[in-house]
């Protein structure tokens, strides 16, 4: 496999990651969101493996495996269990309607390409063209957190942001040092557990996972 072929595969995977990020914005069902998140993790793992193969940085295989285990199986499984336990299958409401959110997302993608243009000129890595996608994924995750009301979607937005950051690291510098990646993976796992505990508490306190209910905690009116 030549470098140019690897770069093309990588670009394809980047496009799929971006597509899944938009799908996250468009999806109304919670279980649908969990599935899309799993797919995004799968593309990410694949992309990491391809970059690791093409660049000869073999520690990326370990990252890839970690990503596969964590983001494709473990985290979606935890979320899936949570959704079943809390019985929250119904549609979720967005603060801003979905077409507008998509349009905002497109603006953010264009903005990311504009931002990373100077970096593309300077870098000579084969993955340089995907940096814009990585930045766009981070911003789309943040946009998802801002525009959705449900606590679970907030967490999915957060995890999507982390996917974007991970992708940015691999595409900009062929991945972070192994220690950092292991640490981040562990943090994510623990975060997922803590989120789970918080969901239970929020649900029992407010009888709902709608974060707007938490406005009651404000100090003054």
């Amino acid at each position: 496999m030549t470098h140019s072929l690897a770069a093309q595969i990588n670009s394809l995977l980047a496009a799929l990651i971006l597509l899944s990020a938009f799908a996250l914005l468009a999806q109304r069902k919670i279980l649908g969101l969990v599935h899309i998140f799993a797919w995004q993790g799968f593309f990410l793992a694949l992309s990491t493996a391809v970059i690791g193969f093409a660049s000869g940085e073999h520690h990326l295989y370990i990252s890839s495996l970690l990503t596969l285990g964590m983001k494709v199986f473990l985290l979606p499984y935890i979320l899936y269990k949570l959704v079943h336990k809390l019985k929250i299958h119904r549609d979720i409401e967005a603060v801003v309607n979905i077409p507008t959110t998509m349009l905002l997302g497109i603006v953010l993608v264009v903005f990311s390409y504009h931002l990373t243009a100077p970096i593309r000129e300077l870098s000579n890595l084969m993955t340089r063209s995907t940096l814009a996608v990585a930045l766009a994924t981070v911003m789309l995750g943040l946009l998802m957190m801002v525009t959705r009301r449900h606590a679970v979607t907030q967490i999915l937005g957060f995890l999507a942001m982390e996917n974007g950051l991970f992708f940015a690291a691999t595409s900009a510098t062929y991945g972070m040092p192994m220690v950092v990646e292991l640490g981040v993976a562990l943090d994510l796992l623990i975060a997922a557990f803590i989120f789970g505990i918080f969901f239970f508490h929020i649900n029992t306190t407010f009888d709902s996972l709608d974060v707007d209910q938490m406005a009651k905690l404000k100090e003054t009116d």
Binding site: V95, F111, L115, T147, D212, M214, K216, K218
Partner: peptide, 25 residues
């Protein structure tokens, strides 16, 4: 500033991020 709504707080950081990127980019 204290709205009590998580989205608003997130929006603060989102807007800050975008503004900083615009100025630095």
């Amino acid at each position: 500033l204290q709205q009590g709504r998580i989205q608003i707080y997130l929006l603060y950081s989102f807007v800050t991020l975008i503004v900083l990127l615009v100025f630095l980019g």
